[in-house]
Design a protein around this nucleic acid. Structure first.
Lengths: 191, 191
DNA sequence: CCGCCTACCAAACGATCGTTAGGGTCTGCA
DNA sequence: TGCAGACCCTAACGATCGTTTGGTAGGCGG
């Protein structure tokens, strides 16, 4: 099943992540595969297609990771698992995640808007967790859940810049979660 | 004082932020300034120079913002002010900040490594605040200050993607800070 | 052995890239 | 009046860009 096409998209993701979409030429890609650049057009219709397919792969991976979170656990626990899920995707598919997070804006035409709504939908799933947690009384009733969700999403979305490929992302997610839930203040620190 | 050169670098920052370094051509830049593209070379030596100058501007702005934080206040307060300072730079110089955070990797040669150490130095200033806060007893003694600093830096570095230009960043920073310090958990939530 | 399919090749297309060359037109100051 | 300096022009350079074309080599089922 490791067709030439999937090798191509995988290498494209790697190069797009390393040099950026506009910084990667079709010639670079062909050279990385040991092939003449014209030969690539037996598999794709355009360079844009490669970017688009990587985006789709990323969107699918991130959503699928969230989908596996059980619904019958507490909202706070689902937040922890969601952070784990996101960081796991970043760690396991670093190239795809990097392109998904950083290079999406080079999509052209309606694909850009399609991706934007896909992305908003993903972030909304995080926001919903915090809203739910607050409404169910698991989180502080005066919590600014918008800001809290933004904080988690920031940590999640920034991770591709420093995460080494194959890191233990579960433990890392738990460390972030612990700080987020209990705060950094000393137990008896005066205000 | 608004020399043509500064207009050029400002426009370059704007376009690099909007379309990326490799996505912006010298021709685009010239058109935005209402000038033939060859004319730009009366002011610069290369396209790389424009990127480099924007980076320098960004580095200067971020460091200067941190420099203005008084040293005689508590470490926790300095953390709050540091977050304010960073977000203020992002809000006030969104284009420069965007290029600084996202496009730096297209610097070539030793400029790339120069920038990388500049950046590490900046992040270290944040980490030091958390270490200090923990050692002085202002923060929990069992705090994972590396993770805490990473969390704040993530929020700070991700902000360019969603901050509207000219937003009230001080209030936003304080909201992040409040969550970070006190956590999200309900006061009486069972473990 | 034939015909199909996947994969690739060599060569070229027009467009655009960053950059250079040489000359021109203003303004302001001596 | 003349000269300097800032600013811009047109035209072209070689290189590289994404993409197209027409043809070929090898494997595999009929």
């Amino acid at each position: 099943m490791a067709t030439r096409k999937t090798e191509l998209t995988r290498e494209a993701a790697r190069l797009f992540a390393e040099r950026g979409y506009h910084g990667t030429s079709i010639g670079d890609l062909a050279k990385a595969l040991g092939v003449q650049k014209g030969s690539l057009y037996a598999h794709i219709e355009s360079k844009q297609d490669l970017l688009y397919e990587t985006m789709r792969e990323g969107a699918q991976a991130f959503h699928a990771a969230l989908d596996e979170i059980p619904e019958d656990v507490k909202a706070t626990e689902r937040i922890r698992l969601a952070l784990r899920a996101h960081l796991r995707v970043v760690g396991e598919q670093l190239d795809v995640a990097t392109v998904f997070i950083r290079e999406w804006r080079y999509l052209e035409g309606e694909r850009a808007t399609e991706f934007l709504s896909e992305r908003r939908r993903y972030e909304e799933r995080f926001r919903a967790l915090f809203r739910e947690g607050r409404e169910l009384g698991e989180l502080r009733t005066d919590l600014d859940d918008q800001a809290a969700a933004l904080l988690v999403l920031s940590a999640a979305n920034w991770a591709y810049t420093w995460l080494p490929a194959g890191a233990d992302t579960d433990e890392l997610a738990d460390r972030f979660y612990a700080i987020l839930v209990d705060g950094t203040r000393g137990y008896s620190t005066p205000v």
